[in-house]
């Protein structure tokens, strides 16, 4: 129980991911499949963001008080990593979000074409048409 609470966000991401996966596999409506895809991708974004979370950490803008008198003081230059959140996963997820949007856009376009072609967006009906 403690483990679940301590790792709450990781549990959540897996639950979300499974929901997305279920929607993609079990739903017949193509739009719902795409929604599932979105949930799936978002779950991974959540996972990445969870990696970089630190309690009490600040945004990682490092500000050196450059003191001309202590310019050579090495101890002064040391950055305490615990004070700052890791910015890298955020940056990565920015890219992933862009990819997600592009995928979404492309998926919707293709669904439009499918609708024009088959006049339905229900998978079973499309398959029926294709098998004829």
């Amino acid at each position: 129980m403690n483990l679940i609470i301590a790792k709450f966000n990781y549990v959540l991401y897996i639950v979300l991911m499974m929901m997305g996966l279920w929607a993609m596999i079990a739903k017949s409506n193509l739009i719902k499949k795409v929604v599932g895809l979105g949930i799936f991708q978002t779950a991974i974004i959540l996972f990445y963001i969870s990696i970089s979370v630190k309690k009490g950490a600040n945004i990682p803008i490092i500000h050196h008080h450059v003191d001309p008198n202590h310019a050579a003081d090495a101890a002064h230059m040391v950055i305490d990593a615990a004070k700052y959140a890791n910015p890298l996963p955020h940056v990565l997820m920015l890219t992933a979000i862009v990819v997600g949007v592009a995928t979404l856009g492309l998926a919707l376009t293709i669904i439009q074409h499918i609708y024009q072609e088959h006049h339905t967006i229900e998978e079973d009906e499309i398959l029926e048409q294709l098998n004829q």
């Binding site: 492309l106 998926a107 293709i110 669904i111 499918i114 088959h118 499309i126 294709l130």
Partner: peptide, 8 residues
Amino acid sequence: YFSTFNYL
């Protein structure tokens, strides 16, 4: 279109 959607 449909097969590409599945691939997607």
